[in-house]
Amino acid sequence: MSQPNSRIFLPKITKVASKTQKLGSSSSHKLREMKKIAIIQYPGSNCEYETARAVMASGMEAEIFRWNRDAASLDEYDGYIIPGGFSYQDRVRAGAIAAKKGIMRTIFGEAAKGKPVLGICNGAQVLVESGMIPGVNPGELEMALAPNTGTSGYYCNWVHVVHSTRKGKCAFTRFFEKSEVFPMPVAHAEGRFVTRKKGLIESMYDNGQIVLRYSTVDGKVEDRFPVNPNGSTDNIAGICNPAGNVFALMPHPERAAWLRQVPDDTGDEYAEAKRDAYGSWQRMTEAGPGRKIFESMREYLENIPY
């Protein structure tokens, strides 16, 4: 698999398209036209810039798309990311207001064509509230991301997740082996996947939709705090739709996209790699575990015709 690990530094990103081309990433992408990802910026979003950087570091173009632009013009992008933050200040419920806006209607339609859509943290809440995830019956509200249990409110820490579906099922985990364990940070107050629909979880397993589950460092799925940081059903951390092109992810891959960001005390190979990288800026700017989520997206776009 191709893993561009070159460093990408970009000047202030407001309009990034042309800069990305110029700075490039790994040489293999220069020849091809880069895929263009819209990063949706709602009032209250706060992870759009680092998400854009992670996208660019993975060999794609990123453009931050402000909420009050013409939603119809979104169809010209190859894929979409709804980043973390507090869209509309979590008013009514986290993700509930954003889910009703025209932007999500457009994205819903584009996703049906097979374009990849990633919702991170608050973005995952938006995907659930808009009925795109789990999407067993697309558009129907089948789950909730409920307030955490186990802590009083917001919880931010690094956790481990285990890849729990077959390799290649989900557009965003194409570079992860089945049962691969890796660290990412969570940071939310409402991240507990729940449903009251009988049999839904079972059919999601059947469909291979349970993509990531919280686990111990050695991949054991234990339902106890802090292994399961929010009390999520079956330790679920990330769910894709039946087709695999829409992914709701509570942990933040953009905060684990560079080795620099990884703590040196999570007890896994990435912590060790960070320690090995000590003193070398070059190595600190190499990919962290979350980068593969974005690289999978790129690989999906380049190889899967939709």
Partner: peptide, 25 residues
């Protein structure tokens, strides 16, 4: 400090609890 978002903006190098000072890049 686990109630605080120590990661947002993606600049973290060292966070609260890991050393005597937090470090960002």
């Amino acid at each position: 400090f686990r109630s605080y978002d120590t990661e947002v903006q993606g600049n973290a190098v060292i966070r609260p609890g890991e050393a005597d000072a937090g470090v960002i890049a």
